[in-house]
């Protein structure tokens, strides 16, 4: 079997203007910064990014890529939390960035559903709030739920601690967060790994994201 390892430039060549890009990480922790920094150099526009928050672009955070927003590469974000992220708010105020808020657990589950071939699900989250607007409400066994649809992306940029050349991945602690879910939900998945090893070096029962979900593996440049 051919190795899935490619270089970072070849990987980011696969992103096209207008794509929906799924970005792992939580407040920047566990984000694929080697891939994101390469994306930041590209002459692309109208990308939609889907992530827990905009931490990967927060100029205050180490490694962050504010250019993704400031240069108009990403023009729409779907997140659960904008936070006190000055880069995000300044671009929203300038009108160069639009956003949609999605409850964090609903976002996670919509991605998981997409990757699992499930059309959507009924959840109690958001019943009676603005999140419910335009959605079907249903009473099941006496409890109220709203219908949330699965959510797919064109390309996922995800990060792990260790991957083998077949794309089997292991994450470190809380850096896992949204990464496996983003990988499940995208048509093409690029996995950045701090360490790349040969198949067999990760014991089968230690794999947290099976290589079946991964198309390409890139060496991370992070310390």
């Amino acid at each position: 079997m051919e190795s899935k390892v490619i270089d970072v430039k070849t990987a980011i060549d696969k992103v096209k203007s207008g794509d929906t890009v799924l970005v792992g990480g939580f407040g920047g922790s566990g984000a694929a910064f080697t891939l994101l920094h390469e994306l930041e150099k590209r002459d692309l526009t109208n990308l939609t990014s889907v992530s827990e928050d905009g931490g990967y672009a927060n100029a205050k955070l180490k490694n962050a890529c504010p250019g993704l927003l400031d240069k108009g590469i990403i023009t729409h974000i779907k997140v659960s939390f904008l936070g006190s992220n000055a880069t995000v708010h300044s671009n929203i105020n300038k009108g160069t960035l639009t956003y949609e808020l999605i409850p964090q657990g609903t976002l996670a589950e919509r991605l998981r559903a997409a990757g699992s071939g499930i059309a959507g699900f009924y959840t109690p989250t958001g019943v009676g709030t603005v999140v419910e607007e335009g959605k079907e409400r249903r009473t099941i066994d006496g409890k109220e739920y709203i219908f949330e649809k699965a959510f797919h992306g064109d390309i996922a940029l995800v990060k792990c601690f260790r991957a083998d050349t077949m794309g089997n991945a292991v994450f470190k602690y809380s850096a896992m967060n949204f990464n496996p879910l983003m990988a499940m939900a995208a048509k093409m998945v690029i996995l950045e790994a701090e360490e790349i090893v040969e198949p067999g070096e990760i014991e089968a029962d230690q794999v947290q994201l099976p290589g079946v979900f991964v198309d390409h593996v890139v060496q991370s440049m992070e310390v």
Partner: peptide, 28 residues
């Protein structure tokens, strides 16, 4: 503690013995 071990407020934390980590769908 580890550079990849944070809480939801982005602080580096340590875990008690028996603590564990999981993805966001399991968390919710």
């Amino acid at each position: 503690g580890h550079k990849d071990l944070c809480n939801a407020g982005n602080e580096y934390v340590t875990l008690i013995p028996g603590g564990c980590c999981f993805d966001s769908s399991i968390s919710f």
